[in-house]
Design a protein around this nucleic acid. Structure first.
Lengths: 180, 180
DNA sequence: CTCTGACATGTCAACATTTACATGTCAGCG
DNA sequence: CGCTGACATGTAAATGTTGACATGTCAGAG
């Protein structure tokens, strides 16, 4: 279960409220890496606080509470990141699953889906390139997102899927030509 | 919830027993796309059979039952694949999460992790290239795996992560040099 | 013939996650 | 001042997933 580590990681970047953490999962983090809604975040923050890995450092308006990682939390996070993932690291990605199952469609349907993928990935990649061009330092996370490291990862991801989809279209079309 | 669709997809490729389906999730499918253990597969096959999307076509030795998709199941699968995923498609990937959190480590630790990633991705990519070289037709799924489409996807994925990790190492090292 | 390991299916309790419900604050607009 | 929408936190039931336990078959090695 990686949610506690995701929260520790976010809080290690910057102390935040549960609400802000929930917002973070709506961005790149939730898009590529790990999803969570506020209904799992709030209870989990409570558990982490009980274990002494995070603490409330500030109470603001509208009942907001700002959490920060404790030194123990930082240790836990560092240990987790430095321990190589078991080969059974959890993976669940609906989009990728769809790509895997594409070959069960007949070629016309598959081509349609692949074309949509090329359009989508091209648009997302363009957006990330745009963001990159007006960005700050590379390792320090910017105010709005989760650092250039993550943005660059997403960009390369989209480029790879884009080129894969183009390749797949070519394969399908050349097979169709050969069969005719 | 994508498990039923994953099962329909696998059965659309080739009728299989629950045991064989569980094996399939241990390969590329479970590595990149979707995980499931036999404890979720058997009950889900039961539900799909109740809904008339799959049926038992053969009973073999040791109580094995071979399932196949029905025409209704094929319809359901096709409809799902052709419906564009909601923007909230489920994503959960522990390895990617680790990469996102990398920037909270101090540079020496981060470099260590990145180096391990480059080694790991290089090895996996080499393995996939090896498999590709002794492979059959591109779209039809081979006996052992889930088609060349998926293998090619995995290969490009590893190459992208590999090149990202090299880039990230360079960034960290140049920052370290600038800071000294 | 016995042992081992792969084949094959299943249940159930514990745990994690999602969906729906529920409540209240505060800033800005008209 | 009332409305709206973002801010902010929570609970509870339903659902989904994992891990531990349980059972039994069959082929091949020794």
């Amino acid at each position: 279960m990686s949610l506690p580590h995701a929260l520790l990681g976010l809080l290690a970047v910057r102390p935040s409220s549960g609400y802000e953490l929930a917002k973070a999962f709506e961005g790149d983090l939730g898009r590529y890496a790990w999803q969570a809604g506020h209904t799992s975040i709030y209870p989990e923050l409570g558990k982490l606080a009980e274990r002494g890995l995070v603490e409330v450092t500030h109470e603001g308006p509208r009942g907001s509470r700002t959490y920060a990682v404790t030194p123990e939390g930082r240790d836990e996070l560092r240990t987790w990141l430095l321990t190589p993932p078991r080969q059974a690291a959890k993976v669940r990605n609906e989009r990728v699953l769809r790509m895997f199952l594409l070959s069960v469609l007949d070629p016309a349907d598959a081509l349609e889906v692949l074309r949509r993928i090329t359009e989508h990935t091209a648009a997302e990649a363009a957006e990330l390139r745009r963001i990159r061009s007006d960005a700050g330092p590379v390792v320090a996370p910017g105010a709005e997102g989760f650092g250039q490291l993550a943005a660059e990862y997403g960009l390369r991801q989209y480029e790879a899927v884009h080129s894969w989809a183009l390749w797949a279209i070519e394969q399908l079309e050349s097979r169709a030509a050969a069969a005719s």
